[in-house]
């Protein structure tokens, strides 16, 4: 049995992520979940698109495909269907998945190809310097929304549920234990598993949105994460849910017909 550390391409560390970036945490949790599954490095493939999140496969000692912007899921579909014996894990970001790759995202969920998609949602285009993305909250500052974002943000996890993914969960880069468990459940579930991780981007999001320090961002995630069970209870009681909260937890686990499941 491997440990999470055995999966790192140590000759490439330290990675390019900024100080305090949550992406490194998501890599830890994903690798911990994968090594806990007993998967072999030789039969696991990481696929990603473009952006900060998508640099992750480059730090993992397996076969990996760092592709074009938004297309990771289409590439991963090809890998998995051509060779179902491979375990496929996709790293993607909110811009990559929800903006340029939105079409591939909904169709990958609909097809329910057997792979696990981990989306590092930092609510901003980090690598290009902090432009507003489809998940930038309304009113938030970015370099392309200097008067506050005027658009409603996408709820990626709900979108995945609606599109048909077999397992959907959302956690944050602060909830490391819960996140690791969710990813592990995703890896075990046949069909497409989608785990959205709210991650902090102190450099390009926090800095412009009154969360300058990493601890501010962590504190915000900690206090604004609302467990899905609690949300449902509040709703059934008719209690209003405070502004700015986002749900965390397991949104769906089901057994719709899946493609590319290992024979």
């Amino acid at each position: 049995m491997t440990s999470a550390r055995d999966w790192l391409r140590t000759d490439r560390l330290p990675h390019i992520y900024c100080t305090g970036c949550g992406n490194g945490t998501v890599i830890n949790c994903t690798l911990a979940a994968i090594s806990g599954m007993g998967w072999e490095r030789d039969e696991t493939v990481f696929v990603s698109g473009i952006g900060c999140s998508s640099r992750a496969p480059g730090y993992i000692q397996t076969d990996s495909l760092h592709t074009t912007h938004g297309r990771a899921l289409a590439f991963a579909t090809g890998v998995k269907l051509a060779k179902p014996d491979l375990n496929v894990v996709v790293f993607t970001g909110d811009g990559d998945l929800a903006a340029i790759g939105g079409n591939h995202f909904i169709h990958a969920c609909r097809r329910n190809v057997d792979m696990t998609v981990v989306c590092m949602n930092n609510q901003i285009y980090g690598m290009t310097g902090g432009q507003g993305s489809p998940t930038t909250p309304m009113g938030a500052q970015s370099t392309t929304t200097p008067y506050g974002s005027a658009e409603a943000a996408f709820d990626l996890a709900e979108l995945a549920v609606a599109a048909g993914a077999n397992y959907v969960a959302r956690w944050t880069a602060y909830h490391v234990k819960e996140l690791t468990k969710a990813i592990a459940t995703g890896l075990q579930t046949p069909g497409l598993s989608f785990i959205e991780v709210m991650t902090q981007c102190p450099t390009n999001y926090g800095r412009r949105n009154k969360q300058r320090r990493v601890s501010d961002m962590i504190e915000h995630m900690r206090t604004h994460a609302l467990l899905i069970e609690k949300k449902r209870r509040l709703e059934s009681e008719g209690t209003p849910i405070p502004e700015g909260m986002f749900t965390v937890g397991e949104l769906v686990r089901r057994a719709r017909p899946a493609m590319g499941v290992r024979r």
């Binding site: 696929v47 076969d63 495909l65 592709t67 074009t68 297309r71 289409a74 590439f75 991963a76 579909t77 090809g78 890998v79 998995k80 269907l81 051509a82 060779k83 491979l86 079409n103 591939h104 169709h107």
Partner: peptide, 26 residues
């Protein structure tokens, strides 16, 4: 072999590249 209808031509060529890296003629 595997035949997969993709969502657009961007996706179809992407899946072909992914499949090619598994060693298949695609």
């Amino acid at each position: 072999g595997t035949f997969i209808p993709m969502e657009d031509e961007i996706g179809s060529i992407a899946s072909v590249i992914g499949a090619a890296w598994t060693g298949a003629r695609a």
